[in-house]
Design a protein around this nucleic acid. Structure first.
Lengths: 342, 342
DNA sequence: CTGAAAGCGCTAACAA
DNA sequence: TTGTTAGCGCTTTCAG
């Protein structure tokens, strides 16, 4: 029984007429927490099923002021970390009855984020997640005024009103630094991400401090901008000469793959025999035997859970202070790093 | 000047009062194609800027019946082909003034798609894109009744009312088949995707027919379900024994990487010297030197363009017939396939 | 428990 | 060109 009455748009009024009740009775039957007698519920549900009625989420949102939509701005989808995050975030939100309005942003163009955010706000989202994207402080002010909670995912900002969920990037960089020191390497290279990103800055500072704690220093540094091709060029620049490093920390896995590819297939070097490489994120590909990449794992499940939690709390109570979570990750040692040759 | 008047929700009425005009005058200024005198426009824009007013997209949508939202259901985000498609689709839609309401679906659970689609419809989207997901015919009937255009992306269905954009999967499989034949291989293996997927069926049939056209036949077949771990197991099952194939066609690149990893690092085989491997999709990773995978390229830009086109046409004119595009791809020969040893 | 009535913020006739 | 008016489909008082 599909009752295909070919009604273009079935409204609660039509259901009411068919069920012989008032329109508001229909509304009550479909509103959680409203009361109706079993008899009415039965009549209404029957009529609704016959007509194929479903409440119009937009009309409901207008009244209640709750759209049940969360805006998600994302960039760098070619880095496997983000599709994974988007998938889990979307699922977690769906479980809570929220839906995701998604926007792509180019990470380096701040202007872009501005306009995209305005459009999101126009759609009356109840909250916004910015993944791998920063925002101007004037924009964060506007969101605060609108009372719309914003959570930065895998990025930080100085503005303390801004909620942010990150891994301890400094700690992760530090761990890689001491790992290299323990392996006995002394000529060390670093390939940076996009310089404007807090993750890049924190990981580099942690790495430098980790090296320093063992009396070591960086001897080479290039910039890869979180882009495969840039990272490849950076690796060649760093390692094509005679005084190449013994170990390189690459600011994320996505670039580390480019570096390993360049070292192995362009320069004919072996990893880890000739040179050690470590990344950051621990995306699934890092575990594939072709790379078997040592990396610092971001606790993506906990990051997503914290993000959702931060959102829900501030939606319920907008006066709550910003939620700033800095989670611990874990060094995953694999075959791309090895002790210095005796 | 940010005019932070801390108004939680600025409405057109407030703008009207401040500008000394009627509420509908404000509406006209913000409605494309409505007329207002330069003087009114100036007054209204000024007041709006001071108040930080932006039209409520939902209220507008209720009146006009156009939400400017497209629902996107997607699965298999770990296969790089889909994040790439999502990114381009989202961008193309944004350019046309549409926004994307995104949902994750588990590809094997048809039930799941059903409920997710209902939720999407509740939000009054103007169209739906199903990427790597099929739907029951009863569901497609419902969408037809609602007058909501649905486009299948990278998947086909028998129902002719359903728009679908695909690559010529049969042709792609055929091309791989003849490629193997030309290389002189005779013991041939195939690793299938999820058996319920039209892409899997079409690629396999094309491949078999391609082989047949050269007098060849399949000598081994396993199922990888589009999942890395399953594909790995399939490869081991197929190649661990003594009578392994000389060449394997894997139904998509994502699984082909698993197969190459298993052959090289578990079985100690060389690709292509000991065994040739080809995939399908030509995702960016296929071009990375670690894999250098021969593949059949899907014309993703044209697929996205066709999808958007199909959507826009049927939104404008719902009576238009379904749009079924089957695009030609291209065989990309790389280093993972080589001639049979003399 | 139920129906009538009042809007949510906006656009689209319709007069003026 | 403008203001007035009538809703879009729904939830939510408020009487009954």
């Amino acid at each position: 029984m599909d009752g295909g009455l070919m009604a273009r748009k079935v409204t609660s009024l039509q259901v009411a007429e068919r069920a012989g009740v008032s329109q508001s009775a229909v509304s009550r039957v479909f509103t959680r927490g409203a009361s109706a007698s079993p008899a009415t519920v039965a009549k209404v549900k029957k009529a609704a099923a016959e007509l194929g009625y479903r409440p119009n989420a937009m009309a409901r949102a207008m009244i209640t002021g709750k759209s049940r939509m969360i805006g998600l701005v994302v960039a760098y989808l070619e880095n496997q970390f983000y599709p994974e995050a988007v998938e889990r975030l979307s699922n977690a939100l769906q479980e809570r009855g929220y839906h995701v309005l998604m926007f792509m942003a180019s990470p380096t163009a701040g202007d872009d984020v501005q306009s995209v955010m305005e459009e999101i706000l126009d759609h009356q989202v109840e909250g916004i997640v910015l993944a791998s994207v920063s925002m101007s402080s004037s924009l964060s002010t506007r969101c605060a005024e609108h009372g719309i909670p914003v959570v930065l995912f895998n990025r930080e900002q100085d503005d303390p009103r801004m909620s942010a969920v990150t891994t301890n990037n400094y700690g992760g960089g530090f761990a890689i630094g001491t790992h290299f020191a323990e392996l006995g390497h002394s000529r060390i290279g670093y390939i940076a991400g996009f310089e404007g990103a807090s993750t890049q800055r924190d990981r580099e500072q942690g790495f430098r401090d980790g090296l320093a704690s063992a009396g070591l220093d960086l001897s080479a540094r290039e910039v890869g901008n979180f882009i495969y091709a840039d990272a490849r060029a950076a690796a060649l620049e760093m390692c094509a000469g005679t005084d190449r490093p013994e170990a390189i920390f690459v600011c994320n896995d996505h670039m580390a793959f480019a570096v390993m590819d360049a070292l192995r297939f362009k320069l004919g070097l072996r990893v880890p025999e000739d040179i050690s490489v470590a990344g950051f994120d621990d995306v699934p590909i890092a575990a594939w035997p072709a790379y078997d990449l040592t990396s610092y794992r971001q606790p993506i499940n906990r990051m997503v859970a914290q993000t959702v939690e931060a959102l829900m709390q501030r939606i319920e109570d907008p006066t709550r202070p910003a939620h700033r979570a800095k989670l611990e990750g874990a060094l995953i040692q694999r075959g791309s790093t090895a002790p210095a040759k005796g």
